[in-house]
Write a protein that binds this DNA or RNA. Sequence first.
DNA 1: AGTCTTAGTCAATAGCTCTGACAAAGCCTT
DNA 2: AAGGCTTTGTCAGAGCTATTGACTAAGACT
Lengths: 237, 237
Amino acid sequence: MTTSGRRLRRGSLTPDMIVTESLRLLDSEGSDGFSLPKLGRALGADPTAVYRHFASKDDLVLAIADRLIEEAMAGLAPQPCWLGTVEQVVRRMRATYLAHPAAAALSSYRTTQRPAEMRIVDILIGAVLQAGFEGAKAALVYRAIGDFALAWAGGEAALGALDPALQQSDRAAWTRAYLAVDRTGYPHIWQIRDELAGVPDDGIFETVLAAIIAGLRLQAPRPCGCAEHATATVAAP
Amino acid sequence: MTTSGRRLRRGSLTPDMIVTESLRLLDSEGSDGFSLPKLGRALGADPTAVYRHFASKDDLVLAIADRLIEEAMAGLAPQPCWLGTVEQVVRRMRATYLAHPAAAALSSYRTTQRPAEMRIVDILIGAVLQAGFEGAKAALVYRAIGDFALAWAGGEAALGALDPALQQSDRAAWTRAYLAVDRTGYPHIWQIRDELAGVPDDGIFETVLAAIIAGLRLQAPRPCGCAEHATATVAAP
DNA sequence: AGTCTTAGTCAATAGCTCTGACAAAGCCTT
DNA sequence: AAGGCTTTGTCAGAGCTATTGACTAAGACT
């Protein structure tokens, strides 16, 4: 903020402030606008000032990762139905990563082992145990859910973090490529070429999530009995 | 290969060779070992020689992305059962990305619109249509499957592309964190703390894939009748 | 043979991460 | 209150990066 002036006073920079400003920078300028020199200048300090608080850029990225997890998990509470808990965790993760795509793209595949991360792990495992999974099977199902949430949210964030111009041209190219597709070479694409361009991201996500939820429910020793999730299991007459 | 010597002869570099050498470099040295200067030197040429064949690094990355898709799709053929086709596509994608993690991490979220990509899209849509989905719903389900394959394979690749030392310490830290977890603070983690460290990556993937396959089958107007996938749908007596 | 395009080379710019030396700010002790 | 110590902000710089423009020679074409 304060652009030039003299030397900053001693307590001027704190790790918390630096992480906050990093997020602000990443949100407004994208991944390219995020470098330690730029960050220092944005804080009104020397380009190398951040190194007094974080040993390396990677260190800072880890702190950013933890901030994102904290943001995603603020106020998270287990639901009565374990599938509801799973849905909530995955949706929150996605929402946070979509809100900070550049930051998420940088940090989504890092683990921090800080309290926020531990707490969400505990909540997810709680849901899995509630479903009746036990021991190694419970561990496996937890990892499946957690890794899916991370992979999906991270993937969408990575897309959203691309240069907007490039994103635009990518989308446009798909539309063009679909509509002009050769009927004999790609008959199936041709068949739904008009529908392909307009598929909404939220719908895609909900489709995958619904499929996974339904699949988990089938496998669970104690599937939930709530009305919302019961519809999926259709039994033969 | 040829380290120094004089000026290279005229046809010495081709886009194909450059992509091949890029993959080799990425596989052996990781993302950090991949820069255009290094690539040029690895080819026995000038550090800037690659710019005669690719307009930018991004251009080269797109070519690498296409090479990966080609590799993943070599010999791919639709299966009799549409769920089998879906499984095959997702598994191949993952296998290729795991074999080239650094290259995949660079390129997995880019689309190339080249024939290899179009062909796999057509095959997936064919499977979705075979399942009885139509119009906008077919487009939605195709996107769900395709995006999932990309997100998952890309995510695992991104993890695998991290500095191996860092990967190791990450895994070790989790093991330690799990085993030493506070029983009252994180009761669910505590309950399966011994199982958590040993969950195999392949198992996690197969669990998620199985859940999605089962969920898709439930939604499909024409679920497959083959023995392999029938087990999931348990009807009431 | 002579011309033209172009692939490979070279030099240079601007930016990056990160390091080591330096200086001032504020704490702590006496 | 004075002196000393640690810390934190600053500065200069090494070595890397992507990319550009000028130069040069190799080979295709007339």
